[in-house]
Computed example of a mutant assay.
Amino acid sequence: MYGKITNFIKELYPHQEFVPLHAPCFSGNEKKYLNDCIDSTYVSSVGQYVDRFEEQIAAYTKAAKAVVCVNGTNALHMSLLLAGVEKDDEVITQALTFIATCNAIHYIGAHPVFIDVDKDTMGLSPHALKEWLVHHAEVKGGICYNKRSQRKIKACVPMHTFGHPVHLNELLEVCREYAIELVEDAAESIGSLYKGQHTGTFGKIGVLSFNGNKTITTGGGGMLLFMDEELAKQAKHLTTQAKVPHRWEFIHDEIGYNYRMPNINAALGCAQLENLDKYIANKRETALQYQEFFKHIPDIHFFSEPEGCRSNYWLNAVLLKDKSAREDFLQYTNDHRVMTRPVWGLMNKSDMFKNAETDALVNTQWFEERVVNIPSSVRTALL
């Protein structure tokens, strides 16, 4: 059976001795814009491509403003600072996530609280969140507190796992009831829509990533999405060392951060963005072929987009029947030069966050034992 699967994947990605999980695709104006950037000599954090990339991402996502960062982790850190998270506050998130989500929380000296995910999204569950808050939280003076730790619960950070949107309307409702700011970790979900609206534009702030393995890439890079233009101005100020504009003086009016994306990276992003819709259509076609193929494979289920959503299918995922089957699948596919990988190790099991508060994480642990990502690159033969 595993031989049949690896052969099918190799047919999807022909002429490759080794099929990677997700390789970048450069099929447009990347070299042209990079050369233009080099010729201009503006290769650092000032230049026309930085402004252009921010404007184009804002237009694409229909955010009011977008602010670039050097990577998605920096963008998450900044988003939490702007949401008012301070040292020893608590931030609710999911244990089924890439470690950047939790690292950003830790940079502030805040504490993650891990809540279960939904079976249809692999993302933070509004029902599980409400259940935990009912029993463990109270709102006093417009501030949410953890009744056990007495810490303030300032923010909630759902992550759109593999590009599949979480149940945003329900999460927003719960967060509003408990006076908690919603910050979307939309790092994996550029081009994904929830009820027709782009992910990252529902909460106070949304965060995108343009790492080398993402749907489009700037090499490394991140983006903050805002519906509040004043908050976006503050973000731009803080991410550029909090420097007050002046023709020659160096004046800084608060603690700032060197989170600026270089112009040369933004040039790459502008070229990539021109082909984003084409890449997503390509990846969705691949997902459809996987979905049809796995209908006929016993004990392996292809994970499809949630109802009412359009996923970018950043990374396709299959569910094996148990942990043993997952390990056998990983061993066979990687031995036969098809890259697959398990879902991330759960954050509450890492040494750094093992003492964090959690709920039962029933679905989270179920996914951890079964999820495998399979090759998901743009298929260049179809472009």
Rank of each mutant, 00 (worst) to 15 (best):
L82K: 07
L133D: 00
Q16L: 14
A83R: 03
S79F: 02
Q16H: 07
L76H: 10
G47R: 09
G28S: 15
H22T: 10
A128S: 11
G123I: 14
Y13W: 04
F18W: 04
V19M: 02
A128E: 08
K31R: 11
Q48M: 14
A59H: 02
T121M: 15
E55V: 00
E138D: 07
E30S: 06
V113I: 15
A75G: 14
V113N: 06
E17V: 13
N103F: 14
L124K: 02
L34Y: 03
C37D: 02
T121Q: 13
T101L: 15
I115L: 14
F98S: 13
E86C: 10
V117C: 14
T6S: 11
K31P: 00
D88C: 05
G84K: 06
L76S: 11
E11P: 13
V68Y: 03
F53R: 01
A63I: 08
Y13Q: 00
V113D: 04
I143D: 02
C69V: 06
S44R: 09
I5K: 03
G3W: 02
N29W: 03
D39M: 12
A137Y: 05
A64F: 04
F98I: 13
F114A: 13
K10E: 04
I5C: 05
N71V: 04
V68A: 14
Y13M: 06
I9K: 00
V50F: 08
K119I: 13
L76I: 07
A137M: 07
N71I: 08
A63V: 01
K10D: 00
Q16V: 11
Y107L: 14
K65H: 09
T121W: 15
L82M: 14
L12N: 01
D36M: 08
N29T: 13
K119Q: 08
I57W: 01
R52S: 11
S44W: 11
H136E: 02
Q48H: 05
T101P: 03
L80R: 06
T41V: 12
H77K: 06
E17S: 11
K10M: 05
I143W: 05
F53M: 12
D89V: 10
G142Q: 08
V46S: 04
V43S: 02
M122C: 09
I57D: 00
S44H: 12
L81A: 03
H22S: 11
D118Y: 06
I9V: 11
K32V: 14
A137H: 05
C102P: 04
G28A: 15
D118L: 15
K10H: 05
M78G: 06
Q16F: 06
P24H: 07
A63H: 05
N74G: 03
N146T: 10
L129R: 10
T97D: 08
K62A: 12
Y13N: 00
E30N: 09
N146Q: 07
